[in-house]
Design a protein around this nucleic acid. Structure first.
Lengths: 237, 237
DNA sequence: GGAATAGTGTCTGTGAGACAGTATAGG
DNA sequence: CCTATACTGTCTCACAGACACTATTCC
């Protein structure tokens, strides 16, 4: 960045792409759109769009998220994931994309935005396995990185609560871990650990009603930014 | 990214900036350059430069690293850190920078590249505390994020070995943890834990000679990509 | 031998995993 | 009553932290 005029360099377009994850029908689901125009016309892709001239990266991601899902950023966890800029990743010109990871509670129906022909939820495992369709651009890699980030952050942050309604029960929180990690956890040990990890949960005092079985206490996410001790997955999961 | 021609959008310049960390004189040190030209002429900044038209982001970071330090990328750990693109972060025009984190064993003298007036090591703590100088652009934030990334990754990856010469002793590895975390660790417990964590270390069979005290066994980084169990810092460090 | 550093053993507390047992709801 | 779910207690093993002790070098 020293000694050069940036205007002397060939420009690049900058986009944001979103890995929006939620849990639907006990499966990890990712929001996908069908591209209406070339390149990759008709192909499935992650939602995203161009960063506007006077817009920061985070605000651009929040705007795209609102356009695609109708959700305000304050009810969704949104964090930067990584950037991707291999030459040729977009056949039109040099495009560098900054990917963001969004985690949301179970959402009803995707709200198609202006620049997406369709928007829909798909099971993340199916897409990652490439069973149905291959994603446009390098979006398969971006999705892979996003899912791995989510899995890793459940270990040492209270991020699982981002997948839960507010407030939530311990059992709902446990099902998030089981769904995202693809494992089963002992409900009794999980309950003990979640409630005894400082700052993980804030009790609301109220409980569920009308369900089967004994009513469950309701919690909100606690003040801790990091879990100590962490919720470790097994060794080589 | 749907339905728009990227050429219709105002372009941005894309740069890479480097947070190069090493350990010098038992302190965490960061590589800094003095800017030769505006903006922020004469100010201290992270090394970095423009991504070339047909160059990927990672290769651009590796090239800048070689230019600044003379080190090939295969002897240095290099990973993408985050991207920064607030409007106005560069007064000339819209510049989005992709920051990379590089960790290197103790390096002798910085090798000033073509686009840096000077390059030198500075104690990271001094710069983070803002005692001596304020960095150009948003580089203080980038450095903060880079140091925190390094601290966090020592916990659950074998990354501390990237700060060590090859091969290294357990004591050298321990001093990396102590220096980066700013703590002291029990040498005996650390030795037991490091040698018993599967895949963390590969014995070389040889030992140090000529030092004071009993010769130490020499190790190389083992095959594990993640440490299990991790080397946890205390609760609220 | 003494100093210094490397490495091992042992004890104790804490937490994870397994799982018996209790509590409170609906049918 | 039975079933289902929430929650608690107890046992055992593994590991972290504290620290005595042994091992091997240089002086």
């Amino acid at each position: 960045m020293q000694g050069y005029d940036p205007r002397a360099y060939p420009p690049a377009a900058v986009t944001v792409d979103l890995v929006v994850l939620t849990i639907r029908e006990d499966r990890l689901a990712v929001l996908l759109v069908r591209r209406a125009e070339p390149p990759f016309q008709g192909r499935i892709a992650l939602p995203g769009g161009f960063v506007r001239p006077d817009e920061g990266l985070g605000p651009a991601a929040a705007r795209e998220l609102a356009e695609e899902t109708g959700l305000a950023a304050d009810s969704v966890h949104l964090e930067q994931l990584a950037s991707y800029g291999d030459p040729g990743r977009d056949p039109r010109m040099r495009v560098v994309t900054v990917a963001y990871l969004a985690l949301a509670p179970g959402l009803p129906r995707p709200h198609a935005g202006t620049d997406a022909a369709e928007a829909s939820w798909a099971p993340a495992e199916d897409i990652l396995a490439g069973r149905h369709t291959r994603l446009a651009f390098d979006h398969h890699q971006i999705l892979t990185d996003g899912v791995e980030r989510a899995r890793a952050k459940l270990e040492y942050t209270p991020l699982a609560a981002a997948f839960c309604p507010r407030p939530f029960t311990i059992a709902q929180l446990r099902r998030v871990y089981e769904t995202v990690w693809g494992t089963t956890l002992d409900p009794r040990n999980f309950h003990r650990k979640a409630t005894r990890t400082p700052g993980f949960l804030s009790p609301t005092g109220s409980a569920t009603i009308g369900d089967r079985g004994r009513p469950a206490q309701l919690y909100r996410q606690g003040p801790a930014a990091l879990l100590y001790p962490p919720m470790l997955r097994g060794a080589a999961d």
